[in-house]
Design a protein around this nucleic acid. Structure first.
Length: 638
RNA sequence: GCUGGUGUGGCUCAGUGGUAGAGCAACGGUUUCGUAAACCGUCGGUCAGCGGUUCAAAUCCGCUCACCAGCUCCA
């Protein structure tokens, strides 16, 4: 007998050699039914794993988050098996579980179509019906090499070469299919029930564009039909919220693909919202001690040579413009200009930190395949700022920035963030020692604010490491907006300094930061986050007045004027339409916060009937009460 | 940039070799209406662009551009 320590601290005695499933069954029959795998000694193991010594054991069930990973991984194997049954020859590459599902990469001559997905799905259902046991066996590196060589799986052979020789190599087999895999897996194909293949796309082998492009099939799987349906519904919801769709429908922005892909036109309503965002932010910036500046859109290439952009960022810059035989470049960043503003006067250590902020419009060349609505464009406006500070101020400034960022993002209802610390990339400028100091400063600030963060090795900018804060929106999707970057390099390149209390010149440290990131992207995120239903404080129309018949137009006009005098923006739908149609347009298409329905009754009682865009009838209001309601919304930014 | 798909009036889409269609929007009228689409009529397209095949091309072929799903990259 051996002793198993369970998560609750209890000890379970089982026979030496009993499997994880046996142990689960010994705890309870129902547990064994929903068991997916086990965690023993901190390692995920199959249900069929034999236990041969005293150890800790936790049974992972369908309710645990890790279980989905196992399910999806197994579903990926079933998909690969189906593809191998249907097509030949096929080489399989990798097929992991990912955030919302799984994928598998294949190399074959036939190109998959959507019809193929249906066929593959059908074959997968066959495999599931066959309820094939999934078994694991381990073999030596040599055996594995021979095995996959014989099976003509060159990608597996390549993967094998990267596995350290001392590590055991495991193979998972289900009937006519086998795969190199760490596992664990479900015990049989029949355990997979609710899945869906979603799309097919190209993907480079190992994500490197120098390698061959493979075909990737994406899919997802869940333990219950409801969970799968929920997920499909959420995908549908995300499609409905797509900022490109809503932007068109609501008249927020526009792009002219024929006259400049990735270049954004802010339509009146979108431009109004942008102005409100800018006003709000400028207010906050001034309060936080920033100076608002404006700088040119182009400058001579010399500036970009000095800054290092010409060497390290050229592939993202637009081609030079020649003016009076001099070469000018469109700015991809604002930082060199802010450095020049700093340099424009002699700075004392007492002046520091100097904080310059600008809504600076920059242009970056992006490869044609990556443009995406407002999220990825070629011209955008950053809510950019640069902080020039003394070394002893660095830590506090970063702390302040993180707090400032959180405060502003909370206003928009963003409560959850993913924080990344990106370290030195392959192409970089400056000395290693300074990179270390900068990276440490960011890391310490992160630790001191108590934020959880992930290190992203090699993902920093060429001049310094950075903290990226990704926003989770209302659908729990993640967007990168905020970035905080420490830079020792530009101050050096431009030879800027301040006079210290010792009367000597000293080099300041520079922090680059963008909070919303780009106004375009932030706007896109907001559209999807709010599903187009912007809070009143950002909107050009707070209330749509909907007269029932033409004879109410006079009263409608008087209401509009009265509201306007108290700072509530109202519009009248004076079209010759029935009120149902006016409601539909105001609520569904325009998403105006309030609709004021007025007819004989309202005119008689000097009231308005208020309907919210959520569809709720809020009842009859006096004009004063309604004004107060809207002004409260605006004041509280709700 | 790469792989696959798509490109038809302002919008959403039908039309697979034989004279370009629908709904919505716009415009003109009728109707004056009580909480998610009234009715009638009118206008509007060198079918992304260029070239080719054909008696004949939105439709078949080639190139270019753009968009979409990804890969890669990033605010």
């Amino acid at each position: 007998m051996i002793k198993l320590t369970l998560p609750d601290g209890g000890i379970l005695e089982v026979e030496n050699g009993a499997t994880v499933l046996d142990a689960a069954g010994q705890i309870s029959r129902s547990l064994a039914k929903i068991a997916v795998c086990g965690v023993s000694d901190g390692k995920m193991v199959d249900l069929s794993t034999a236990l041969t010594r005293d150890t800790s054991l936790r049974i992972v069930t369908e309710k645990d988050p890790e279980a989905l990973e196992v399910l999806r991984h197994t579903t990926a194997h079933i998909m690969a098996q189906a593809v191998k049954r249907l097509f030949s020859p096929v080489a399989v590459a990798i097929g992991p579980a990912i955030d919302n599902g799984f994928y598998y990469d294949f190399d074959l001559d036939h190109t998959f179509s959507d019809e193929d997905l249906a066929t593959i799905e059908k074959e997968m259902r066959n495999i599931i019906k066959e309820n094939i046991p999934i078994t694991r066996r381990t073999l030596s590196a040599r055996e594995a090499q021979d095995y996959f060589h014989e099976k003509k799986e060159p990608y597996k052979e390549e993967l094998l070469r990267d596995i350290p020789p001392e590590e055991p190599i495991s193979l998972y087999e289900q009937g006519d299919f086998s795969d190199l895999c760490r596992g664990p897996h479900l015990p049989a194909t029949g355990r997979v029930k609710h899945f869906r293949l979603l799309s097919v796309a190209g993907a480079y082998w190992r994500g490197d564009e120098k390698n061959k492009m493979l075909q990737r099939i994406y899919g997802t799987a869940f333990f219950s039909g409801e969970a799968l349906d929920d997920h499909i519904r959420a995908m549908e919801e995300a499609r409905m919220r797509d900022h490109r769709k809503l932007g068109k429908q609501m008249g927020l922005f526009h792009i002219e693909p024929d006259f400049g892909p990735g270049l954004v036109y802010w339509l009146p309503k979108g431009a109004f919202i942008r102005r409100k965002l800018e006003d709000y932010l400028i207010d906050e910036l001034i309060r936080a001690g920033y100076s608002i500046v404006n700088t040119p859109h182009i400058s001579k290439s010399d500036l970009w040579k000095t800054s290092g952009h010409w060497n390290f960022y050229r592939e993202n810059m637009f081609s030079p413009i020649t003016i009076d035989e001099e070469e000018y470049l469109l700015k991809p960043m604002n930082c060199p200009f802010h450095v020049l503003i700093f340099k424009n006067e002699t700075r004392s250590y007492r002046d520091l930190p100097v904080k310059t902020a600008e809504f600076g419009t920059v242009y970056r060349y992006e490869r044609s395949g990556v443009l995406h609505g407002l999220m990825r464009v070629r011209g955008f406006t950053q809510d950019d700022a640069h902080i020039f500070c003394r070394p002893d101020q660095l830590h506090q400034e970063i702390m302040d920035l993180i707090a400032f960022t959180k405060r502003v993002l909370h206003v928009f209802g963003f409560e959850k963030f993913d924080v990344y610390l990106s370290t030195r990339p392959e192409k970089y400028v400056g000395e290693l020692e300074q990179w270390d100091i900068a990276t440490r400063a960011l890391e310490e600030a992160l630790k001191d604010t108590g934020l959880d963060y992930t290190v992203d090795p090699g993902e920093g900018v060429f001049y310094g490491p950075k903290i990226d804060i990704k926003i989770r929106d209302s659908l729990n999707r993640s967007w990168q907006c905020t970035t905080i970057q420490v830079d020792f390099n530009l101050p050096q390149r431009f030879d800027i300094h301040y006079i210290g209390d010792d009367g000597e010149p000293h080099r300041p440290i520079m922090i680059h930061r963008a909070l919303m990131g780009s106004l375009e992207r932030f706007f896109g995120v907001l559209i999807e986050h709010y599903a187009g239903a912007f809070p009143a404080w950002l909107l050009p129309v707070h209330a749509k007045i909907l007269p029932i018949a033409d004879r109410h137009l006079d009263y409608a006009g008087r209401i509009k004027d009265a509201l306007s005098n108290s700072g509530v923006y109202a519009d009248i739908d004076s079209r010759n339409e029935k009120v149902g149609k006016k409601i539909r347009d105001a609520q569904v298409t325009e998403k105006v916060p309030y609709m004021l329905i007025i007819g004989d009754k309202e005119e008689e009682e000097k009231t308005v009937s208020v309907r919210s865009r959520t569809g709720e009838d809020l009842g009859s209001f006096t004009l004063d009460d309604f004004t107060r309601l809207v002004l409260d919304d605006i004041r509280l930014k709700r």
